[in-house]
């Protein structure tokens, strides 16, 4: 019985990859919070089943780009689409799982790990209640990230790494076609980081599209299939092996960056 979820998820993913619809498509996008643009002249397309990492120095517009893709911001110029619909009107939240850089949550709020993970099922049930099946999916997600023993703990009482695992479990429970992660391993201990990237890889193999915003270059070059290197505009977009050999990194980051140092 427990094998159902992942294989369902896998077949959905494969069905999606057979169609020609891009998961994310940006064309000539420009956006600025003030008069000067934070990102400009951005065109890229992410197809179903891809594992894409967006890298760039601090303040290069990585998070802004992610918000444009997800429709949290509207481009000043150009168009952004999500599963073929304009991003800002797209509202089928069940297709997207999202893990933020830092838990934006209230510091004081009493809420358990399980209650957080259950939120991943909310887009599937609308105004209804969660079914036993939903709860089983939540249990599986908790098990996958190794947080079963913490299910009834208050989220605010956890360490940064534990909390991040809870948010990853929430994204897993949403059984999305697209998983968006904004520096997901900040505050997570080194051993768990490796296991976490292995998890992403196996999710990707089962057909889920992965979009990773990452500061840690070594992680990116080890795991992602495709790299988008950003600093206001796109410096590089292509297979990871080519990125490692190119000079895009030096141009985008300045001279100090290496693949070994983490940043």
């Amino acid at each position: 019985m427990s094998t159902m979820t992942a294989s369902d998820r896998g077949s959905e993913g494969r069905t999606a990859s057979q169609s020609d619809e891009a998961v994310v498509e940006l064309s000539n996008v420009e956006f600025g919070y003030t008069a000067s643009p934070v990102v400009e002249d951005i065109s890229l397309r992410i197809d179903p089943g891809e594992y894409v990492a967006v890298v760039g120095p601090n303040g290069s517009g990585k998070s802004t780009l992610m918000k444009l893709m997800l429709g949290l911001l509207r481009p000043d110029e150009g168009t952004a689409t999500l599963f073929g619909e304009p991003s800002h009107v797209f509202d089928d939240g069940a297709r997207i799982g999202y893990v933020a850089q830092h838990a934006s949550a209230s510091k004081e709020m009493p809420i358990t790990v399980r209650e957080v993970v259950r939120m991943g099922r909310f887009p599937h049930v609308g105004f209804g209640r969660l079914s036993a099946e939903d709860d089983r999916i939540v249990d599986d997600a908790l098990e996958t990230v190794g947080m079963t023993a913490f299910a009834n703990r208050r989220v605010t009482k956890l360490s940064g790494g534990q909390r991040q695992r809870a948010f990853i479990a929430r994204a897993l429970a949403s059984e999305a076609d697209l998983l968006v992660l904004d520096e997901p391993t900040v505050g997570v201990d080194a051993e768990s980081v490796d296991a976490f990237y292995d998890l992403l890889e196996s999710l990707n193999e089962s057909g889920i599209t992965i979009l990773l915003i990452e500061h840690d270059l070594s992680a990116v070059t080890e795991h992602a299939d495709r790299v988008v290197c950003l600093n206001r505009e796109i410096y590089f977009d292509g297979p990871t092996e080519e990125f490692v050999e190119s000079d895009a990194l030096a141009r985008a980051f300045g001279t100090a960056a290496t693949f070994l140092g983490g940043n």
Binding site: S2, A6, E143, V145, G146, D198, L199, S202, L203
Partner: peptide, 15 residues
Amino acid sequence: APELGSIDAGDAGDA
């Protein structure tokens, strides 16, 4: 303090 489990990549991937 409960025991923290390991992240189980296999479970999500091939299961």
